[in-house]
Design a binder for these strands. Structure first.
Lengths: 127, 127, 127, 127
DNA sequence: GTGGTCTAGACCACC
DNA sequence: GTGGTCTAGACCACA
């Protein structure tokens, strides 16, 4: 995983976790890597991972069993979709569309890239 | 104008200026609002506005006549397109497309919003 | 039994045992559930139950017969009252009272709930 | 301000801020101390104060103006009451009442302390 | 000046 | 082993 430097690392880690859930890679009640392990894996400080996990926990994407670790919340998928879709559709997308038009990027270009991107993402398994 | 709080205010102001240029509202060599005026108008520290103007000036979108004010640069349109299109297509769009797919937003929804947005922007109001 | 997650599980187990004693459910010298049984019952690591029992043993609430199990200590009631009353009155209650007032909860509300709670506790069910 | 050692410092700081708001000491839209200032004042690390402020910000008790500082949110009072009262009445109070009865503390003792506590807290000014 | 992020390292409680 | 908290200190962007 490589980090974009204009966005906080802990946000990118949280996004990564959400993505794993949406893609069906991490099912409900599955244990996710410990803050230390993920810290080592991603080459970041455990505190930074911890911050991501706190953020996710507050949003009911993961939960904690004392002394054991963090687990994917059963409602994770729903919560992510509910929260992120809303923000995305109402706040991010309008800006993007506006730019598409201002920069004169034709719709065909967009659909072409959309299809390419769809092919890249393996279809999420139905639970 | 209301600001999104996840982005620096000076960036949002700069974006606003670029938009006016692309939309043809501010033709080449037209004087743009003074730092002070815009500061009052947007309820923002003049230093912040100044920072936007400096940023735009470095990218040849506006130029300065000492003691008079800032003006839209003749090459403004070209520079904006050249710089922003690149960044947008290569960096922002991929993330957006990925999200579109993860959040299961169908292409039809996208084109619908695209068209709506186009209708909103197309007719420049005559002041 | 469901656990509050802001408090250590072993403390909650210890509290539960104390409560049984105070309520007269577990008389002096009665055998209490084994570490293993209670662990299974509460879905908790036996080590955690063991920790509660050790904690209680140090405070003379229970005692241990090697190879047989843990038993309610004859002085259990007295020890619990002596220790907990003090802590409760001097440390916990002041905070609670302060909150009652800050949140504008009238005394009547308090006495109402007090009486309701008393009714719930008073009649010890005969098994 | 002296800290209780069984509770996280950042929670106690957050509680302190809430208390100031409920007592009417910090009106809406008033600037609260900067993380650095409060850190010096309370003899704790600015990061710790920051953590309190983040916590409060997420719960709409305070808000942030970029580069300026944190301010009391207009809905602060309402949010605190709504959130804390609920938790207090449904989770904390039942435990306390249960203990009152188990430790045989008479209601008169409680009301006596309640009145004393009320006298200590200066009556909140009506905004 | 303000907040925001990150690191390194420590210590603790809990399971 | 797990998370949770705190410190000290650094660097950055922003107003």
């Amino acid at each position: 995983m490589e980090f974009r430097d204009h966005q906080a690392i802990y946000v990118q880690i949280a996004d990564y976790v959400c993505e794993q859930v949406l893609l069906g890679q991490w099912p409900a009640d599955e244990k996710i890597p410990s803050v230390r392990d993920l810290g080592v894996l991603l080459q970041v400080n455990p505190n930074t991972v911890m911050r991501s996990y706190e953020w996710l926990q507050q949003r009911d994407v993961i939960y904690n069993k004392r002394g054991i670790g963090f687990f994917v919340s059963p409602q994770a998928r729903a919560h992510i979709l509910e929260y992120r879709r809303e923000v995305f559709l109402e706040q991010e997308l309008p800006v993007v569309l506006r730019n598409l038009i201002l920069y004169d990027i034709p719709l065909e270009e967009l659909t072409r890239r959309y299809d390419a991107c769809r092919r890249d993402l393996s279809p999420p398994p139905q639970p």
